[in-house]
């Protein structure tokens, strides 16, 4: 032990005594520091996470850990998978977003052949702000960095390249987890990517993950969830991204309706454009939370078995 500390001390004093190049040199006075070439955020390189070693690791993590964990925590009830049967090749999965549990849940519920060819659009500023975080995110969740606010050209090109290579993308068009339990308006990003890539978008509604781990919480709590896959939407040539985003939002709202009522009622309300709004009432203060409470009560009931 003594030997180790003394040799460490020696190394330290050697480095202390010796200057450049054993130690870094300060930027000279009056010189512009070098512009930092970022390799975090949207510049984080995730190519390696789609090589076979990483994919194998990830498949083991998903099948061996994530799926049992989700089974225990979320008890997912999946519907609408049959709607995907008509499509072939890569797609974009667009889901509402309440919780960090959403991604593992989707990764373990999206069916083959997509399951092991998924990448997850993750907020470049959140998941990829450090190299370690970015590395873990891309290894475990197969995350790729996407700008939260406005999808940049580079992100778009990257996604298109990935889709061309046969990867499917999970994206949360709200651009972040719900702060209060209600949904947020869908941003144009997912729609923009779908238009640029010319692939179908599968709307997904996830219900109940907010209970498990909502924004601000750090310890998960078991609660049952429902995942509803919708009919794939194909953007028209040259379609306006904003309009397509609205269409997506409407589709997810209809799925939410379907999850809480039934398919027929949901369809009728969808055609009459009276599906309950995902984003909640356009009001402030207690009324939003009160309105959310109604859903909450309903779901509370659902936690108990039906006799």
């Amino acid at each position: 032990m003594n030997a180790i500390t003394s040799s460490l001390g020696k190394a330290r004093s050697f480095i202390n005594k010796s200057g450049f190049p054993y130690r870094s040199a300060p930027t000279p006075y009056g010189v512009e520091p070098a512009p930092v070439k970022k390799n975090t955020g949207s510049d984080f390189n995730t190519d390696w996470a789609r090589k076979y070693p990483a994919r194998l690791t990830r498949a083991m993590l998903i099948e061996g850990f994530m799926r049992p964990a989700m089974k225990f925590l979320a008890d997912p009830h999946i519907s609408g998978v049959d709607r995907l049967s008509g499509i072939d090749g890569p797609v974009i999965f667009a889901a509402n977003h309440h919780s960090h549990a959403d991604t593992p849940l989707l990764l373990s519920t999206i069916p083959d052949p997509w399951r092991h060819h998924l990448v997850v659009g993750a907020a470049a500023d959140y998941f990829f702000s450090t190299r370690v975080g970015g590395t873990i995110s891309s290894l475990v969740m197969s995350a790729v960095p996407i700008e939260r606010t406005k999808v940049g050209r580079r992100s778009a090109e990257m996604v298109r390249d990935l889709i061309d290579e046969g990867w499917s993308l999970i994206i949360f068009p709200e651009g972040g987890r719900s702060p209060d339990g209600w949904g947020q308006p869908f941003r144009g990003g997912a729609a923009y990517l779908a238009i640029r890539c010319g692939v179908p978008v599968v709307p997904i509604h996830i219900y109940g993950t907010g209970k498990i781990l909502r924004k601000g919480k750090s310890l998960p709590r078991p609660s049952s969830t429902k995942i509803t896959f919708g009919d794939p939407l194909m953007p028209d040539e040259g379609q306006n991204a904003k309009r397509f985003a609205e269409k997506l939002e409407t589709a997810v709202a209809a799925l939410a309706d379907e999850a809480s009522t039934d398919w027929w009622q949901a369809r009728r309300r969808a055609y009459s454009k009276t599906s309950p709004d995902l984003t909640g009432p356009d009001a402030g203060g207690w009324r939003r939370i009160w309105a959310l409470g109604k859903n909450d009560r309903r779901s509370q009931r659902k936690r108990w078995p039906d006799f």
């Binding site: 450049f20 190049p21 054993y22 870094s24 300060p26 000279p28």
Partner: peptide, 11 residues
């Protein structure tokens, strides 16, 4: 590279 921009790996 300029000396003060040498990273640990460069050095």
């Amino acid at each position: 590279k300029r000396e003060w921009e040498w990273s640990a790996r460069d050095r």
